[in-house]
């Protein structure tokens, strides 16, 4: 009886060693990563359910974001138009530079808080964060590449196969994995640490001027630029004359409906002082220009937003205080967060 028992124990131990050793040949599971955002914010639209957020996925997405390989001539990574110090907009540019000395046809928006958006781009043509990168990658005047070529370059790169395996397990690199990694990186970019946020959390106080500005903001701006995201995500005609060079009709390009003519997505005002110039075509250089447009410049048209029929009356004091308040939306921690920066070669 004792001898049979001992043999059984050895069999179990040997089996354990066998399985432990074979398991180490498989890829280690990626490390889950968590995101935090302030209490009281709405539920994100993108919940990573089909694309669990992991350290390896995030780092792969980050490398892809800064990699010129995703463009035809290597000169146009995502980061060439989406610059961290400009809250991931293009600093000081109405249109951005693309392949072969071409320009884009719309102003690059800042990238942050994307997981709260249902659609992307000024006309909302992109219906899911995961498929957004396909547009600039394949646009002839932007990154000018084909998905096929990008995947081939990634497969031939010394670093990517290992990074893809660590993030998504064994198997071929394909467009889906690349897009999931980019979605993890971009989805993790949350801007919620401005002075405004600290005040809302009870950790700081507005100055007198900032508080006055906040009151004006709530009364005159918040119907469209609603807190805490500083946009309600809707498409509106805010009284801009149609751009005579691009003839951009905005949302109507996507829905085909005439009632959507000249409607563009309400952008978030977070980091607004970093993302000049303003509007879908960058026609306004300064925030003051924008305020003057709302107080005096609105052009009527059949699709003009009802809230702007009488413009937005703003006194010079209102405008001064608003500027002070809007400055509190600059999130220095976000734009200097090394986790979202290009990493050194490693």
């Amino acid at each position: 009886m004792g001898r049979k028992y001992r043999i059984l124990v050895w069999i179990v131990v040997a089996g354990g060693i066998f399985f432990a050793c074979t398991k180490s040949d498989k890829q280690k599971a990626p490390t889950p990563m968590s995101l935090s955002y302030p209490l009281g914010w709405p539920e994100p639209v993108y919940d990573f359910s089909g694309n669990p957020l992991t350290k390896e996925g995030f780092e792969l997405g980050r490398r892809l974001f800064y990699d010129g390989k995703l463009s035809r001539d290597g000169n146009f990574p995502c980061a060439s138009c989406h610059q961290q110090f400009a809250a991931f907009a293009t600093y000081d540019h109405d249109y951005s530079h693309g392949f072969d000395n071409q320009f884009t046809t719309r102003n690059a928006p800042g990238l942050f808080n994307l997981i709260w958006m249902t659609n992307f781009h000024w006309d909302g043509g992109i219906n899911h964060i995961e498929v957004q990168p396909l547009a600039p990658i394949t646009a002839e005047n932007e990154m000018a590449e084909t998905i096929e070529n990008v995947i081939a370059k990634l497969k031939a790169d010394p670093k990517y196969p290992g990074m893809f395996a660590k993030a998504f397990g064994d198997g071929e690199i394909d467009s889906r994995k690349m897009l999931l990694a980019l979605a993890q990186f971009m989805g993790a970019m949350i801007s919620s640490n401005s002075k405004y946020d600290k005040v809302m959390a009870g950790k700081d106080q507005f100055t007198y001027d900032q508080q006055q500005g906040y009151e004006v903001f709530k009364a005159k701006c918040a119907s469209c630029h609603a807190e805490p995201l500083f946009t309600d995500g809707s498409y509106r005609n805010n009284g801009l004359i149609k751009n005579p060079f691009t003839n951009d009709v905005g949302r109507m390009n996507i829905t085909g409906r005439s009632e959507d003519s000249l409607k563009f997505k309400v952008p978030s005002l977070r980091n607004v002082f970093l993302t000049f110039p303003y509007m879908h075509d960058g026609r306004f250089r300064t925030v003051t220009d924008v305020l003057n447009h709302y107080s005096d410049g609105i052009t009527d048209s059949p699709t003009l937003d009802p809230l702007l029929k009488n413009k937005i009356p703003l006194t010079p004091e209102d405008k001064f205080y608003l500027l002070e308040f809007l400055r509190t939306l600059t999130d220095t921690a976000f734009v200097s967060d090394k986790r979202f920066s290009e990493q050194g070669e490693n």
Binding site: H121, G125, I126, N127, H128, V131, L134, A135, I137, T138, A139, T146, I147, E148, I151, D174, S175, R176, N253, I254
Partner: peptide, 12 residues
């Protein structure tokens, strides 16, 4: 897979 050229990139 969008690589087959059957997916609109600008109007998903």
């Amino acid at each position: 897979d969008p690589l087959h050229g059957m997916f609109w990139t600008w109007n998903s």
